[in-house]
Design a protein around this nucleic acid. Structure first.
Lengths: 396, 410
DNA sequence: TTATTTTCAGATGAAACGTAGGAAATTTACACA
DNA sequence: TGTAAATTTCCTACGTTTCATCTGAAAATAAGG
């Protein structure tokens, strides 16, 4: 019965393609981090203050996705801790642990104290943290990954408080390592926080094609059975990913999915077509996911665009809005103003689903020209499957 | 397990038919109602779920005989057989206890998180209580003490815990941590969790996730599978010749359209059979009527099981459009009944809950500069809800709240 | 022809909106010593 | 004294709508040769 989908088991079950698929999954941290030697060295040289039991500077790490920020940070810290063993550190991913309360709770827990998850306020939790910290008499490194997500959701006053901890605590010190892939993040910060957080800055450059190739090669040996992936295939994946901001995660994804496709097709060697299929599949998944989680009216606007594009090659804001209104009304739904619809179009453009260009057509006014940026098939599929209301509308 | 109330409804059949029904004479359709009321006592296998049962059985064996702890998460919409499978396994293990001494010391605990309240406190205390067979305080103690208690009871013993509807627990503050502690507890305890929400894992912290065993997705049954299931129930529970293929297909098709809910399908068959009682065979009309009845009773039951203030709130909502005025009306009811009204904040949450229950539908609209955001409530079956409400609100206290009392609308 | 003025259609900005919903504080309902 | 959960109190930021101001080159018009 194929209705048993067991993700974990699938890696155990013997496969003609994979030896161990896990080595290609994004949360696997390898023993070695090739081509990040410089970054490791830099980070370590800042943190080496710990050796003397002193507080290292706060560090701000910036780098695009898949440049090894997280892996390097974890790597350096865990190695350092093994060797020095005179400090503590917490790794907190602010996208998953996304409230000030839980961040503080995590910190306290690492320091070896239990916290109730109800009843207390963040202020109270902060007080407790200070107390525990005072007692521990150690240096504490707090790693805040995807720190931009936290600030976007809750503002920067938690960061402010954290940077201020050292004034409240005397027997212990803390340092903060902030990680982000958002360039603009630092500008939107309170100047006090900015200067404090950015005592040291570290920029992770993207990998180039050769580096990616090397990384892939190392992983492929672990993950695939012998003879399944050729050198040229790895080169291809690396090249594709290198074009795409040098994102190592993407490269690994590509390789993994290509392998999965090969397995599905019951072939025994990954070929170029599988890689191509993988690229398409990954892109499709991304688009599908983005669309499926869109708010209702954004979906409606998108649907209008699809509908409009069956007749014209490009659409203007006005045309889209008219269609949108018609569809909304015929579905018995309210509709937003053109002002808002215009913003929605911009949002869709930013997400890369459509491409909207502002044009002046002189006598014929100023408008946006909109075309689809991805295959309309997936868009429609995502729309119809994510909301029953559309299915009824489209068929009826 | 369809523990449906046996509510025989004979429609407008004549007296003689009823007599015959009582005597079980001719025209009878149901051979063995137990099949529908307590199917586990009758069936020895579960169609389309054999694989997972076998795999779980193997995991249990390793657990009992080789000390390999395991945990599973069963995911699937309602009526996909998750609870059924779990209860089946539970029963089987109880049986095996009689034959295999290795199993005799294995304790089993089944509990439904939602039914006990869904809070970490409630879940842990009930587990502890069932494990120790003694009274355990429900309030006031540190949650860690429950874990400790569970651990100490299990010293030298093994236990399998079945947690139904864990999603209600996980979505609460600290719910996932409780699971984590349970899974990681230094005790021989294996856990099988069931969730109706396929995305529960998104509510869990990564460390909880990593200590969680494999997940199994129970796909909704398709029409063909449903039909086979129905055929089985019919074979065991109904008298030969009282049903035909067409009827089963009909029910299967309807249920398949609605998320492949087997529980509903079986219930529809049972209802139809009851309706056909005395007639001698099930007709399409019976099924159609059963559907209406089913929906109605579901709504009725839902309303009936609501806490008092929820009912009052619902009563207020039915007469209004938006939540703000609904709360005014509600407060007025409370005054008349000399009850302390709940705050608007809480009221608003109650409305949201009623929406989750599927009793009402909320719509949040933004009138922007001309009126900000506003929460509206739509009620589909006003009359039916009103009826259900009035019946059992009246029971709960001599009520008199008048209609259309002066509530300012400006 | 060239210089100008319209004129279209929507872009882009900014204010006003009023409660939905988040977070802190308080209350409830117990337990334990 | 303690704890977890339920409810109340407090408050603002949210996703819009409304109102108002810009934009910028085509086309229409006027002026100049």
């Amino acid at each position: 019965m194929s209705d048993i989908i067991d993700e974990v088991l699938s890696s155990v079950k013997n496969s003609a393609i994979f030896k161990n698929r896990e080595y290609l999954l994004p949360d696997y941290i390898p023993e070695e981090l090739p081509h990040r030697e410089n970054e490791i060295k830099k980070l370590a040289s800042i943190l080496v203050q710990l050796y003397r039991g002193e507080r290292p500077s706060n560090i701000f790490i910036y780098g695009l996705t898949g440049t090894g920020k997280t892996a390097v940070t974890k790597y350096v810290l865990s190695n350092l801790q093994r060797k020095l063993n005179n400090f503590e550190y917490v790794y907190i991913n602010a996208r998953q642990t996304d409230t000030p309360y839980r961040i503080l709770a995590d910190i306290i827990e690492i320091l070896g104290d239990k916290v109730p998850f109800t009843g207390l306020s963040t202020a109270e939790l902060y007080r407790r943290m200070v107390k525990v910290l005072e007692r521990s008499e150690r240096v504490m490194i707090i790693v805040l990954d995807e720190i931009d997500a936290l600030v976007k959701k809750h503002g920067d006053d938690i960061l402010y408080k954290l940077t201020r901890v050292n004034y409240d605590v005397h027997k212990s010190k803390i340092s903060i390592v902030g990680i982000t892939n958002d360039v603009k993040f630092i500008d939107g910060l309170d100047p006090r926080v900015r200067s404090s957080l950015g005592e040291e800055e570290l920029v992770f450059p993207p990998y180039n094609a050769e580096q990616l190739e090397d990384i892939l090669k190392k992983r492929a040996v672990l993950a695939f059975r012998e003879g399944v992936v050729s050198e040229s295939i790895i080169k291809l994946c690396a090249a594709i990913a290198a074009r795409d901001h040098g994102d190592a995660r993407r490269a690994l994804d590509l390789l993994r999915v290509a392998g999965e496709i090969t397995e599905r097709e019951r072939k025994n060697q990954v070929g170029e077509e599988e890689v191509e299929k993988a690229r398409v599949e990954i892109e499709r998944d991304r688009v599908y996911e983005v669309i499926a989680t869109l708010p209702f009216h954004s979906k409606l606007v998108l649907l209008s665009i699809i509908k409009g594009l069956t007749k014209n090659t490009r659409l203007t804001t006005g045309e889209i809005y008219d269609l949108y209104r018609n569809i909304a009304t015929s579905m018995g739904s309210e509709f937003v103003t053109q002002r808002r619809a215009s913003d929605i179009i911009n949002e869709l453009d930013m997400m890369g689903i459509i491409s909207a260009r502002v044009v002046n057509r002189g006598r014929y006014g100023k408008t946006k020209e909109v075309v689809l940026a991805v295959d309309s098939g997936i868009v429609l599929k995502a729309l119809l499957e994510s909301d029953e209301r559309f299915a009824d509308f489209w068929s009826g | 397990m369809p523990q449906s109330e046996t509510q025989f409804n004979y429609g407008n059949l004549g007296n003689s038919v009823i007599r015959e029904a009582l005597k079980g004479g001719k025209g009878e359709v149901i051979k063995n109602p137990k099949v529908f009321i307590d199917p586990l006592s009758v069936f020895t296998d579960i169609p389309f779920r054999e694989d997972i049962i076998r795999e779980t059985a193997i995991a249990v064996r390793y657990f009992v005989k080789n000390d390999v702890k395991f945990s599973n998460l069963f995911l699937g919409l309602t009526g996909t057989g998750k609870t059924f499978v779990v209860k089946y396994i539970y029963n089987e293990i109880e049986e095996v206890k009689k034959e295999d001494p290795d199993y005799s010391g294995v304790k089993q605990v089944y509990l439904n998180s939602r039914e006990v309240g869904g809070t970490p406190q409630a879940v842990l205390s009930v587990i502890a209580e069932k494990l120790t067979n003694s009274l355990v305080p429900r309030h006031g103690v540190n949650l860690g003490e429950y874990i400790d208690k569970i651990k100490s009871v299990l010293r030298g013993k093994k236990a399998i815990i079945y947690l139904d509807e864990v999603d209600t627990l996980v979505k609460r503050r600290g719910g996932d941590i409780v699971l984590y502690q349970l899974l990681r507890a230094d005790a021989d305890v294996s856990v099988i969790m069931i969730s109706n929400d396929i995305n529960v894992r998104d509510y869990m912290e990564p460390r909880v996730l990593s200590s969680l065993g494999p997940s199994v997705i129970f796909k909704p049954y398709d029409a063909v599978q449903l039909k086979e299931i129905l055929a089985k129930y019919a074979e065991y529970g109904l008298i030969d010749g009282t049903f035909n293929d067409e009827i089963l297909s009909y029910i299967a098709a309807i249920s398949a359209r609605e998320h492949g809910d087997a529980r509903k399908a079986v219930n529809l068959l049972f209802r139809s059979a009851q309706l056909a009682s005395g007639i001698g065979f099930i007709k399409k009309e019976h099924v159609d009527k059963a559907i209406v009845e089913y929906e109605q009773e579901r709504l009725f039951e839902a309303v009936k099981s609501l806490p008092f203030h929820y009912k009052l709130a619902l009563r207020a909502i039915v007469t209004t459009e938006d939540v703000v005025t609904a709360h005014k009306v509600y407060s007025k009811y409370c005054d008349k009944l000399k009850q302390k009204p709940l705050s608007y904040r809480r009221f608003s949450d109650i409305v949201s809950e009623l929406d989750m229950f599927g009793i009402v539908k909320i719509k949040i609209m933004n009138r922007g500069r001309a009126g900000g955001i506003r929460k509206y409530v739509e009620v589909h079956d006003k009359e039916k809800i009103m009826k259900a409400l009035d019946e059992n609100l009246a029971e709960e206290m001599g009520y008199e709240y008048d209609e259309g009392s002066d509530v300012e609308t400006s």
